[in-house]
């Protein structure tokens, strides 16, 4: 696997309903198509009702691994939601972990009800930067809206991951996977969203970005 970690430990995290599971499936189908071994551990079920969702994706060359990444050993965390990104980092990040994070909050019920506080965007970024080596923040939900639907933020995030240079296989495997998994206008939407994510990360030379993107809505 050359310069890549063995196994490469990726965590995809977010809120149930954001399409995290689908994103982890696209990554793993692409990995198998590219000839790698893959183990994905994920929790769904009641989690699809607005709970925290986390998929562990482990890509390896020869040996199969179990579906759970040990604590502190994630190489990449793709966070579909800021607070969920922090939550996963607390248990799985180390100073070398790379973070790709959507800037769009999804407010927990307790925050909506005013019983809990949703942290300020700048403070979340400070916390994320404190914990990780490289941080890339992108407006995935906004890019997805541009592509046609905010629901396609998962494919924007997948595109960003594919374009990050962190995976041992090329974007073409992702494109083929998306083409095989979806049909008609959903396929077009997802391909467009994927490309937006890919281009966004590709155009961003400085990894440790400043936090310019506004959060949509505050509490």
């Amino acid at each position: 696997m050359g310069a890549f970690h063995e196994p490469l430990n990726i965590i995809v995290t977010g809120v149930g309903g954001q399409g995290n599971v689908l994103a982890s499936q696209v990554i793993s189908v692409a990995a198998v198509e590219a000839g790698y071994r893959v183990a994905v551990g994920e929790t769904f079920g009641v989690s699809q009702r607005g709970g925290s969702v986390m998929s562990h994706v482990r890509i390896s060359h020869d040996r199969p691994y179990g579906p759970l990444i040990p604590r502190g050993r994630a190489h990449v965390i793709a966070g579909f939601e800021p607070v969920e990104t922090v939550r996963v980092m607390l248990d799985y990040a180390n100073p070398d972990t790379v973070i790709i994070m959507n800037n769009r909050p999804n407010y927990p019920l307790g925050c909506l009800l005013g019983e809990d506080k949703y942290p300020q965007p700048q403070k979340i970024l400070a916390a994320v930067q404190k914990m990780a080596g490289r941080v890339h923040v992108l407006p995935a939900t906004e890019l997805a809206k541009e592509a046609g639907s905010p629901m396609a933020a998962n494919m924007v995030m997948t595109g960003a991951l594919a374009g990050s240079g962190l995976l041992p296989f090329g974007r073409e495997y992702f494109v083929e996977t998306i083409k095989s998994l979806f049909k008609d206008h959903i396929r077009e939407l997802n391909l467009k969203a994927f490309t937006f994510g890919l281009e966004h990360i590709g155009s961003n030379v400085a990894w440790r970005v400043s936090y310019n993107e506004n959060f949509a809505g505050n509490l």
Binding site: V83, V86, G110, D116, K123
Partner: peptide, 27 residues
């Protein structure tokens, strides 16, 4: 020997709040 995990209290201080729980909700 575990990898050094982030110091949780330090992160909560940076956030200015505890981590909000995400309880299950009807869609």
């Amino acid at each position: 020997t575990k990898p050094a995990l982030p110091a949780h209290q330090e992160i909560f201080d940076l956030l200015g709040t505890k981590m909000p729980d995400r309880e299950l909700a009807l869609c």
